[in-house]
Each structure stands twice: as structure tokens, then as C-alpha cells.
């Protein structure tokens, strides 16, 4: 039982981590490197002459293979971690008589994406390097609380009887009604367009990774059981 969970989570973590890495290196990391140009002051957007203009264009990925291979390893470890949680929850549901096909695994993955990526990003969007934000401890607390509230809320919506799905919706809304920790001032040094593109592309890459994760976890669990 435990072995099946670990095997499926590792397979899914590798598949999702590699897919997310390909998407990140194609779409996300170039913007991250471009953001670092503004973080370090190599490029200036809001110049002393008052001109909010700067050239568009990301630096090449360069030859820093140690850094980039750590990013791939981080993706695989992180998605394997999420895969273990997903495999545990799918198996727990199975004990309660709720079976999950490989295709239903897509929906589990999508819900994982909503709980772990989209809901927290609703309050704390993915940040370009150099973004000045509220104290990290406060943000981590809001972030983890939002993930928990969203995961439980989605569970109530999916499996709750009677009025429980309504309670799930309310639970999902609470962190956003309370509000994420933000500063009273904007400090951004990078072009707003760059930050917006970065946030949208990060979320898109994560969506693909999570859907892959849910599918492979459910498909391998199904195969190992039979």
C-alpha cells in the first residue's frame, strides 16, 4: 500500500516536474532573468528623467547549468511532495468508497492547482525577483492558511452532502475577504507589464504541471492496484 503510494508519487513527480521545467525554461525563467536586470539596476525602467520606458528583451538562459539543474531538481522534488499528498488523499477517498479513474485524476490535479497555486495567487501573485513585499513570515502564514482553506473547501464542494458544499465555497472565500498581507506602498522597479506577464505565465506553467501530476498519480495507482 505505502509502496504503491510512493511509486505513483515519484513517477508523477518526475513527469510533472519535467513538464513544468520545460514550460518554465521556455516561458517563465527568461522573464525571471529579465526581472533580475531591474532588481540589480542593470536596466532602469522609471529613469531619473521621468521616462517610464525601457527596452524589452530577456537575456539568454546563459551557461549557469548548476543553477538551472537545481531548478529542475527543485521542480521534481516539489511535485513529488505534492504527488505524495495527492496519492494519500486519493487512497483515503478509496477507503471511503470513492474510486478515482485516471481521467478523474485530471480533476484531482486541477483542484490541487486551484488550492495550491491559483487561490494563493489571488491574494499574493507570483513575484518577479526584486519585488518588495510584506514580511515573509506573514505571507507564508496567509499562504499556508489559504491553501488549507481552499483544499478543505474544494473537498466539501466535491464530496459534501446537503449544505456542506456551500460551506466549502464560504471557506474558500474567507482568506480573500480577510485579505493577504500587503505593504502600504508600491516599490516596483520593473515594468508592470513584465510583472503581469510573469504572474500569468507562472500560473499557466503550474496548471499544466498539476494536471499532469493528477493524471499520472491516479493512472499509476490504478495500474499498481490491479
Amino acid at each position: 500500500m505505502a509502496k504503491n503510494l510512493f511509486v505513483s508519487a515519484i513517477c508523477a513527480g518526475i513527469a510533472a516536474g519535467l513538464l513544468a521545467s520545460v514550460l518554465q525554461f521556455t516561458f517563465v525563467i527568461p522573464l525571471l532573468l529579465e526581472g533580475e536586470l531591474y532588481e540589480t539596476g542593470a536596466r532602469v525602467h522609471f529613469g531619473a528623467d521621468g521616462s517610464p520606458q525601457s527596452d524589452r528583451g530577456a537575456p539568454s538562459l546563459g551557461g549557469d547549468w548548476a543553477r538551472h539543474s537545481m531548478t529542475v531538481a527543485f521542480n521534481i522534488v516539489t511535485y513529488t511532495g505534492y504527488g505524495l499528498l495527492l496519492a494519500a488523499m486519493i487512497s483515503f477517498a478509496a477507503l471511503k468508497g470513492i474510486t478515482t479513474s485516471a481521467r478523474q485524476g485530471l480533476i484531482w490535479g486541477l483542484c490541487g492547482y486551484i488550492a495550491v497555486q491559483l487561490a494563493p495567487a489571488f491574494g499574493l501573485p507570483p513575484e518577479l525577483p526584486g519585488t518588495i513585499a510584506a514580511e515573509v513570515g506573514q505571507r507564508q502564514l496567509w499562504w499556508i492558511s489559504t491553501i488549507l482553506a481552499s483544499a478543505v473547501g474544494l473537498g466539501l464542494i466535491a464530496f459534501g452532502r446537503s449544505y456542506l458544499p456551500v460551506a466549502g465555497v464560504i471557506l474558500m472565500a474567507i482568506p480573500h475577504l480577510l485579505g493577504a498581507p500587503h505593504l502600504d506602498t508600491f516599490f516596483g522597479v520593473a515594468p508592470p507589464e513584465l510583472a503581469a506577464e510573469f504572474a500569468a505565465l507562472s500560473l499557466g506553467a503550474a496548471a499544466a504541471g498539476w494536471v499532469m501530476l493528477g493524471y499520472v498519480v491516479a493512472a499509476t495507482l490504478k495500474r499498481l492496484e490491479s
Binding site: V28, L32, R67, F74, T78, A206
Partner: peptide, 15 residues
């Protein structure tokens, strides 16, 4: 430092 780029790309509250 090792996880920096991945954390940004995955939207972990990082620093």
C-alpha cells in the same frame, strides 16, 4: 539559493 528560481516560478512566498 538552490531553490530560488523554482520558488519564484512556483509562487512560494520566498523572501
Amino acid at each position: 539559493d538552490a531553490a530560488h528560481d523554482g520558488r519564484h516560478a512556483m509562487a512560494f512566498p520566498c523572501h
